[in-house]
Design a protein around this nucleic acid. Sequence first.
DNA 1: TATATTTGCTTAATCGATTAAGCAAATGTA
DNA 2: TACATTTGCTTAATCGATTAAGCAAATATA
Lengths: 338, 338
Amino acid sequence: MNKKRTTIKDIANELNISPAAVSKALHNDSRISTKTKAAVKRVAKELNYQPNHLASALRKGKSNLVGVVVPKTNSNFFSSVIEQLEAVLNKAGYNIIITQSNESFEKECKNIDTLLYTQVDGIIASMANETVDLSYYEKIKSNGIPLILFDRGENDLNVDYIGINDYESSHLIVKHLISKGCKRIAHIGGYKRTRIFNNRIKGYIDAIEKNNLPIDANLIIESSLTVEDGRHEMERLLELKNRPDAVYVASDNAALGALQVLNEHNIKVPEDIRLIGFGNEPFTSLVTPSISSIEQHSKDIGRLAAETFLKRIAEPELKQTLNKIILDAELIVRDSSR
Amino acid sequence: MNKKRTTIKDIANELNISPAAVSKALHNDSRISTKTKAAVKRVAKELNYQPNHLASALRKGKSNLVGVVVPKTNSNFFSSVIEQLEAVLNKAGYNIIITQSNESFEKECKNIDTLLYTQVDGIIASMANETVDLSYYEKIKSNGIPLILFDRGENDLNVDYIGINDYESSHLIVKHLISKGCKRIAHIGGYKRTRIFNNRIKGYIDAIEKNNLPIDANLIIESSLTVEDGRHEMERLLELKNRPDAVYVASDNAALGALQVLNEHNIKVPEDIRLIGFGNEPFTSLVTPSISSIEQHSKDIGRLAAETFLKRIAEPELKQTLNKIILDAELIVRDSSR
DNA sequence: TATATTTGCTTAATCGATTAAGCAAATGTA
DNA sequence: TACATTTGCTTAATCGATTAAGCAAATATA
């Protein structure tokens, strides 16, 4: 077993030239003869040379690593965003380090520290539900590396952001439900402190008012949007004297929980109550009845986030400003609201 | 904005001592006085010193990064394994780089190259469905860094492996179904070339024979186990003159597809046909009827994989041998087979 | 008191690749 | 022919932290 890895020095010795010449040859420097380049590349292959990334990263002051912070990778949305990030960034010579916050603020801070410590060249993040204190994100900015937010972002940070139009999504949903004859539309939403959920709530309220329906505080609920939350809040809605005839849930998981409860109570969906989720996770089309939902264009978001990062790296003189890319959301109508 | 980061040299200058002393003080070397250590740490804090990971990694010959290769992060199984890997390895000072193969052999090879190039100290992997050629994994071994496989592994590589007892799982399932009176049990499995799926098939066949039921080749199917495959293969099973009275599907996704088809055909589950999946993904308890499945103990697998890696690092003299940790699987009985 | 040991630091080499500076030979230009 | 430029390489410094080797002062031991 060859204990030691091949270095440029080994190649240099083999050919009786200097390591510097080898380095330049491998980078196709114009001041190296074609003959030498060929020889270097041949020997490099023979000795199975693998460049030492740490050494060049140290010397060049950049690691070619991009840190990614997401709440959890097990949703189709995040894994699909990550897939695109990887595809675009790999092509540009970057690798990504993925970390999960599990929706915990504390874990998120640890992850950011870890990434900064690993000398990443930039961070692409989507915030945990819990995150309100932005000091750790300010830390990234003051470190001088690009910070790109997606989906769960925050205007106050004044950085690049890519997401969908949450406010408009709510309008799409309410309009659709009203067109189906609904008059009492409930909203099981996320917490207002998270900007995207706040936008969905605001969109919901404005759309209801715009369509001359009354606002009923009992029909507007904030939660963490887990399956369990969906179950619990749906049970509560069913206890109301005046039940809703439609429920707009701000996540597919919570919508799934709500659907279970409706099924258990033998309430017909969509006939008795119409249901709409958010995120267009694959299971929405697989459950019975299938759940209408909002497509978030995860692939576009991933691609745009990666491209935005590369743009920042290419033009570091551009000063960081709030630069939002907002994609149009799309309502996918399925059986639960037909 | 402080362009330059603080280095040990800056601290050394501030205190008029050598950089070497600073390095030792920060590592609590016994040959540095308590006074100096305190001063160094105070100044390090004042100047907001962040150690340069690349430099120490280069010098020490290790990056403290561990590469992870999985087919896709969007299942609960893999994201849960990754969560545990991260937890255990972070505690030991390692960070992880996650890559997804998307079940593509080509992508998997690229990922491995990328990880080796990034100088990871080890690789923890679960193979893509497509992977048959093991040369890339041999490349990892010949690189001298530990390789740990989990779930989708391969005996021929002679490395550490952590997984559940697939063969025994099939026995559990068949036994359970027979206890419910089933006599024609079908198996929608994965491809035999993947060891775990082959073991499930062998376990299924042996269990059927052990219970004196006839083997019917029409009831044994190989596929990629996606939702679509589950749908398609279930349709085919329903076309048989002699329909099965139970279906054991080797993945939850495919089981979900099968369940959809059964629902669409108004075939009652479990009364007419019993159904069992594999993996215990959260949605199995959420669909109607809920799907019986095999719990794979993802958290244990993640923890054990991480610990195995750390053991290899701690005792590099131990020579790589086939070292399998096989966990007992657990059958979770739900409505689809009750 | 004379010698041995310990303490607390410094010096300098090192990890491997990159790159500014420089030099000799080859080639071009007047 | 005399000088300028280009070509093709070498030398040596550098990135920042670590560490073997060494040295002087302080302390211990006989």
